[in-house]
Every structure is written in structure tokens, then in C-alpha cells.
């Protein structure tokens, strides 16, 4: 009988102690300043889970959900740059370093692996981690270089886009309950 209780306890402990948060609102904007026109796209369909116990955090961003002002640009973005049929998701797996649980003012670094366009790279990104009552908010702004992720710009395309894009990330989390 004893081992059964032990195993049962083990199960309960891992599920109760893990204080996980899941995103309920998300907004990712990328901005590229180019010669002819600035290009901006917005994605509200990204999802994320954050474990407040150990700082583990993951993001999953459906590439084809970026909305552009011009529909043709959106098609080019998916078909020619990001090849979103081959690489449908951009994924970040990482850990938030040195944060104070419950604090409203954590300026933190997050270290992990960012996968864009099928290319994985280790990155370190700075951002804010805010505990607000039952909620958690994460904000960050960083630069992505297209060539780092082997995103080529077709020579024939008239809409030239910049080699670097600025990415702004805003996520709001709620407690995850099974």
C-alpha cells in the first residue's frame, strides 16, 4: 500500500506546486523601416505559458496570423520570406533569469532558444515581468536580423524590406488551472 501512496503524493505534488500561467491576451508587432514604405504587422494569435516557480517560459507564434495592412504583402511574407507552410510556427523556449515573484517591477533577461523559419538560435532578450494580482504581464522589445534566420529577400520583389525588424511583444497571463 505504501508505495502507492508515495506515487500518488508525487503526482499531486508536481501538479499543485507548479504555478503556471497561460496567456489570455497577446500582441506581437513587427516593424520594418524600408526605403519605399514602413511595414508593420500584428499578431494576436500567439500563445505562451510561464512557470513562475522556475522561470521556464515558452512562446508559440503562428506565422500565418500576422496581419498586414496590404493583403498581398501578407501573402509574400508567408510564401516568400517565412515559408510558413514549411515552418508554420515561431517558437521560443527559455528561462526568465533572476526575477522576484510577486513583484510589479522586474526588469529581467530571458535566455533561451528562438526558432524562426526553421533556424534555431540561442538568444538573450531583455524585458519587463510584472506580477499584478492574479495576472502576469510580459513586455519586451528587441531586434531580429533576417539573415540570422536565413530569411532571404527575393531580388525581384519591388517592396524592399529592411535587413532588421523591430519586434514588440505584449502578453497578459492568467493562472493556468486544469
Amino acid at each position: 500500500m505504501k508505495p502507492v501512496i508515495f506515487i500518488a503524493l508525487l503526482f499531486i505534488s508536481t501538479s499543485v506546486v507548479g504555478q503556471k500561467y497561460i496567456s489570455e491576451k497577446s500582441n506581437i508587432v513587427f516593424f520594418s523601416s524600408a526605403l519605399l514604405e514602413d511595414i508593420e504587422a500584428r499578431n494576436e494569435k500567439a500563445k505562451s505559458v510561464f512557470n513562475a516557480d522556475n522561470g521556464d517560459i515558452v512562446f508559440s507564434i503562428p506565422v500565418n496570423q500576422f496581419q498586414f495592412a496590404k493583403s498581398l504583402m501578407q501573402e509574400h511574407f508567408n510564401e516568400k520570406y517565412m515559408e510558413s507552410d514549411k515552418y508554420p510556427k515561431t517558437i521560443f523556449k527559455g528561462k526568465v533569469l533572476d526575477f522576484e515573484k510577486g513583484s510589479e517591477n522586474n526588469n529581467v533577461w530571458t535566455e533561451g532558444e528562438l526558432e524562426i523559419h526553421g533556424v534555431k538560435r540561442n538568444v538573450k532578450i531583455q524585458g519587463n515581468l510584472i506580477f499584478k494580482g492574479e495576472k502576469v504581464i510580459i513586455e519586451s522589445k528587441f531586434i531580429v536580423k533576417l539573415e540570422d534566420y536565413e530569411i532571404e529577400i527575393p531580388k525581384l520583389l519591388f517592396q524592399k524590406i529592411a535587413e532588421e525588424v523591430e519586434v514588440t511583444v505584449n502578453f497578459e497571463y492568467k493562472r493556468y488551472e486544469k
Binding site: 505559458v49 515558452v58 500565418n64 501573402e75 507552410d85 533561451g112
Partner: peptide
């Protein structure tokens, strides 16, 4: 548990994934 904690988190996201991928172009 601790070995692939981040992948577990990802699995959790996949479970809640209800997105539809439209074929383009």
C-alpha cells in the same frame, strides 16, 4: 519532470491549439 519542463509547457500549448491553417498561394 525537470528534464523537459519547457517541452511540457509547449505540449500544454499544443493541447489548447485550435488554430486553422489556410493554404495560401
Amino acid at each position: 519532470f525537470p528534464v523537459c519542463a519547457q517541452d511540457d509547457l509547449l505540449d500544454l500549448l499544443d493541447e489548447t491549439d485550435e488554430s486553422v491553417n489556410y493554404t495560401i498561394a
